[in-house]
Amino acid sequence: MIYNIPYIAVAALVLIGLYALVFKRNLIKLVIGVVLIESGVNLFLIILGYREESIAPIYTSSPGGVMSFPVPQALTLTSIVIGVAVIALMLSLVIHIYRHYGTLDVRKVRRLKE
């Protein structure tokens, strides 16, 4: 059970993020939803590479023993960097929307209709 806690955390983060995306009305909360999903996915990548009792994968200063797997950590770093760019872009768009409409409520920001 104790080993499954990270996976439960992943599921919880992704689901809470999806909930925020679907049901929340505030644009900032939508952005937070995306951030939560992103954290969940990043956490998932990290725990995939973790082995029991393992140490950080730095070969030159290793005291011996099991190392955790470095590739998922590299992937996560890339993903975090991309995430920063996406979130920054989203927030800048939120600023623009607020300037145009004077509100962050998605129900009022709806000039584009079907």
């Binding site: 995306v34 990548l45 000039r111 584009l112």
Partner: peptide, 24 residues
């Protein structure tokens, strides 16, 4: 133009979520 920014925000939310599920 308000509409462009609105469309851009819609697009980035959709595509960021989609891309994260691809990563998952």
């Amino acid at each position: 133009v308000g509409e462009s920014v609105e469309a851009g925000f819609k697009y980035i939310v959709i595509s960021a979520t989609g891309a994260l599920f691809v990563l998952f």
